[in-house]
Amino acid sequence: MIAPAGFAQALAAAFRQDDPSALGALLDDLPADSPPLVPMAVLAKAHRSLDLLLSRGFSANETRVDRLAGLHLVNDAKMVRTLVAAGGDVNLASAGGTPLHLAAANATPPVIKALLDAGADPSATRDDSVTCVTPLEVACELGRTAAVKALLARPPGHATCFFLTAAFVTRKGKKELAVLDLLLAAFGADMEPPAGYDFLLHIASKAGCLDGVERLIERGAAIDRPDREGRTAAFLAMAGLFPRPEHVEVFRRLAAAGANLDQRSGNVTPRDLAQRHGVALP
Rank of each mutant, 00 (worst) to 15 (best):
I2A: 12
P4D: 15
G6S: 05
G6A: 06
Q9N: 01
L11R: 05
F15I: 04
P20D: 14
S21Y: 00
S21F: 05
S21I: 14
A25V: 00
L27Y: 15
L27D: 14
D29N: 05
D29C: 04
D29E: 15
P31D: 04
A32W: 02
S34P: 13
S34K: 10
P35S: 15
P35K: 15
V38Y: 10
V38F: 05
M40Q: 14
L43P: 03
A44K: 02
K45D: 09
A46F: 10
A46K: 07
L53V: 14
S55V: 01
F58D: 04
N61A: 11
N61Y: 04
A69Y: 12
A69P: 15
G70W: 06
H72N: 08
L73P: 01
D76M: 10
D76S: 09
D76F: 09
A77C: 07
A77K: 12
K78V: 12
R81V: 09
T82K: 09
L83Y: 02
V84L: 07
A85M: 05
V90K: 07
V90C: 00
A95R: 13
A95C: 10
L100R: 14
A103Y: 03
A105W: 08
N106L: 12
N106P: 08
P110Q: 10
V111M: 02
V111P: 07
I112V: 08
D117T: 14
D117Y: 04
D117F: 09
A120C: 02
P122D: 13
T125Y: 13
V130L: 15
V130T: 15
T131A: 15
C132K: 01
P135F: 11
E137W: 09
A139W: 05
L142G: 11
R144H: 15
A147N: 03
V148W: 11
K149D: 13
A150S: 12
A150L: 06
L151Y: 00
A153F: 14
A153L: 14
A153Y: 13
P155H: 04
P155C: 12
G157C: 09
H158E: 13
H158N: 04
F163P: 01
L164S: 11
F168K: 04
V169C: 10
K172R: 07
G173I: 05
A178S: 07
A178Y: 09
V179L: 06
D181C: 12
L183R: 08
F187A: 11
G188Q: 05
A189E: 11
D190N: 11
M191N: 03
M191Q: 00
E192C: 03
E192A: 01
P193E: 12
A195Y: 00
Y197N: 14
Y197V: 10
A204T: 11
K206E: 08
C209A: 13
L210I: 06
L210M: 13
R219C: 08
R219S: 12
I223G: 02
D224I: 02
R228L: 10
R228P: 09
G230V: 01
R231Y: 11
L236C: 06
A237K: 00
M238K: 03
P243F: 03
R244V: 06
R244D: 03
V248E: 00
E249V: 01
V250E: 02
R252E: 06
R252C: 05
R252A: 05
A255R: 01
A257E: 12
G258D: 13
A259G: 03
A259E: 08
L261I: 07
R264I: 15
G266Q: 07
N267I: 15
T269D: 06
T269I: 08
D272W: 12
L273N: 00
A274G: 02
Q275L: 15
P282V: 10
